[in-house]
Design a protein around this nucleic acid. Structure first.
Lengths: 144, 144
DNA sequence: GTAAATCTTGACGTTGACGTAAGCGGCGGC
DNA sequence: GCCGCCGCTTACGTCAACGTCAAGATTTAC
């Protein structure tokens, strides 16, 4: 059974360049089989790749992603080693929760900008009624 | 009134280097006043800086952050210009929502890793009872 | 009033994550 | 049998976001 993929399959499906895949291989994040020289990616390789790409999207460096992948791979180490891994995992989770908080705040801030702009557009649309303009509608603490 | 800050004040409070602040100035993201040669940061500068740093934490490039700051600054442009800004804002929000989704998925994935490790640790702690080991507990689709 | 600390402006260096170009190997189609 | 397309390796290039001197101006401490 066990479906495999060529390098081109993955680049098309996951929207990355072949150079990127080779780079991940150079960095030890992937290790596809070979048929002659050509790379053959397994289901597992593909799964790792999706993890890598998501890791990248959430801001991890390739080195950090490599560490995390190692943590998954090596669940059979000594107890001390696993406790270390556990701590690492939890640190990562904490960092991501903080980052999620940052994102929520950034979204709130941007929505303020949207509200402000929509307000101004509505106002300039009612151009027939020159009432006092609502200006100085700034998100910044009133400067200086 | 209007409190101001020296460059050192801000570096200490926000945990960045002075080089970073000068770099942001070079890139047009900040424009502090001067007293002689020394930079004097206003409340507004500080507010912009916190926005920059949060933008950075959520993965925006300095160029993108610059654009966003411009969007805030220039709410007084022509209607067409503002509609463009509005679209930009909304695009940013969409991107952040996707990113938040990514983060939530990454957190879920990492928690799987944690659960797996805790399971193994509990098992290895019960070392007096050599029952069949729960192995092959992988997050990856069973490879090859 | 002088030394030490802090500020300034260049300007080159570094790191991470690839891009890109050069040159060779294999193979399916006609 | 050769053309064009992938794929491979090697290796230098690039871009963003600062780091890191160097060399001088100025402010602060005593």
């Amino acid at each position: 059974m066990s479906h495999t993929y060529t390098i081109r399959d993955l680049t098309k499906e996951l929207n990355v360049t072949s150079r990127t895949l080779r780079h991940y291989e150079d960095e030890g994040l992937l290790a596809p089989a070979r048929r002659g020289l050509a790379r053959i990616y397994s289901q597992r390789d593909r799964a790792r790749l999706t993890l890598i790409l998501r890791g990248r999207r959430v801001g991890f460096s390739l080195a950090e992603i490599g560490e995390i992948l190692d943590l998954y791979d090596r669940g059979d180490g000594a107890v001390a080693q696993n406790q270390h891994s556990l701590r690492k995992f939890k640190e990562r989770i904490e960092a991501l929760l903080r980052q999620k908080q940052d994102i929520e705040e950034a979204i709130a801030e941007l929505r303020l900008g949207v509200a402000r702009l929509e307000h101004q557009l509505a106002e300039s649309h009612a151009e027939m009624t020159p009432r006092p303009r609502m200006t100085g509608y700034s998100v910044m603490p009133a400067g200086e």
